[in-house]
Design a protein around this nucleic acid. Sequence first.
DNA 1: ACCACAAACTTGTTTAAACATGTTATACTC
DNA 2: GAGTATAACATGTTTAAACAAGTTTGTGGT
Lengths: 242, 242
Amino acid sequence: MPKSIYESIYRDLKRRIESDEFAYRELLPSENTLVQTYNCSRNTLRRAVGRLVTDGYVQTMQGKGVRNIYRPVEQTAFTIGEIESFRESALRNGQSYRTQVLLFMELTADEVLAGKTGFPVGAEIYYLQRLHYLDEKPLILNHNYFLKECAPGLTKEIAETSIYDYLEGTLHMSIVNSRRIMTVEKITEIDEKYLELNVEDYNCMAVVTSYTYNSDGIMFEFTQSRHRPDYFRFQEHAVRKG
Amino acid sequence: MPKSIYESIYRDLKRRIESDEFAYRELLPSENTLVQTYNCSRNTLRRAVGRLVTDGYVQTMQGKGVRNIYRPVEQTAFTIGEIESFRESALRNGQSYRTQVLLFMELTADEVLAGKTGFPVGAEIYYLQRLHYLDEKPLILNHNYFLKECAPGLTKEIAETSIYDYLEGTLHMSIVNSRRIMTVEKITEIDEKYLELNVEDYNCMAVVTSYTYNSDGIMFEFTQSRHRPDYFRFQEHAVRKG
DNA sequence: ACCACAAACTTGTTTAAACATGTTATACTC
DNA sequence: GAGTATAACATGTTTAAACAAGTTTGTGGT
């Protein structure tokens, strides 16, 4: 499946680290050793290792070696740094999931919506409200806005399973990158109703606003994800750049 | 200051993009053109562009070119993906900042603390509580735990200005990477008191828990940052990997 | 005017080599 | 035995070249 050498090496090393082949804080084999193992050039190997660094799996130390700093991720954690749908995330954690479509409608972007989402005024939009269940507990209330032009033929049925499968599998769109902003906001009545929250308990929640672009550089999706605060957990890894 | 060619090119391109030299969604000059501009090899240029991609500044399209997708960041946003101290962040946004040390003490990690922080049992720790003001408004309450062995000679005075300047400038430690977990938690009495919050208004807040490693691969800092919910804002960029 | 095909672009992957720089182990000197 | 120079080894940067693959442009033929 991997279409390049460096990616297959990256995946293999990742797998080996995740399966505890190297102890925590242990050094990986040196570049020269790994080059012989994978029978590739040093550049290609370094490219694979470089991705492990940005993923937070290893840490390179000039003159010393490459240290394994991988720690298993707790359950229900949404790993950031990748674009992962709710369904993919649930699958990865081996949990049962279900999506309920609360609202499916088409609308045209007026000035208010355009200002809020970034879509041009007059754009044809699919607007969805979807409730995501994890292990039969409603955790996330999503407000999705899709550019109709980029997601033609979207239906309520598709939205109940996986919109991304439809976009990538059927429409052959490639999703490239996404800008996300996390904030804490007050709970609304609709949140309280669908997420089974009690204002006496929590009166605010985690909100992730995302702008997603396809390979043509067009922003085709604007989504606001409203998360139950007691189940929300976002994990991230940062590298300090000299 | 940049110690490598690719980094200086990266910075220059970043500056040019930020200063609106290229319109939003416009294509940048091609690799060949830029190679001539910067008088460097194609590899070096591509390395600079690669960083702009992970930063969310541009999007590359095979066969087409490199598209500018940079959108200016709103104020008070904490850009994620880099390790940035509160002071650095405030400076970047041109805001006034101040740090008040509420508590400075030394302690030895018992089992409870070790389990919570990840430090080994028996480790000597500096424990600090610090309140960060932005434009004279208290926004963040930090609980910092530093491994004494890695931050010897830390004082209250240092903690009032910049601990990271001390670690990097005086102790010549290099901070390398950091794992961060974001959650939403209930407000405590101490939060309410120092962050001037009202439980009637907001009863929970954004909490960022971070584990920071130095270049020896040692976790030397554990920090819990408790943010005022109405001023909290985290921005992130994600790239979908094939 | 339209279509097909090739040429000329674009970015993506891989290799090889050389040099730079930081760390560690070895051997040597005192 | 302690300290120091050195060799061996680690990762970091840069260049050059070749090929792969996707997109646009231009050419030629009908």
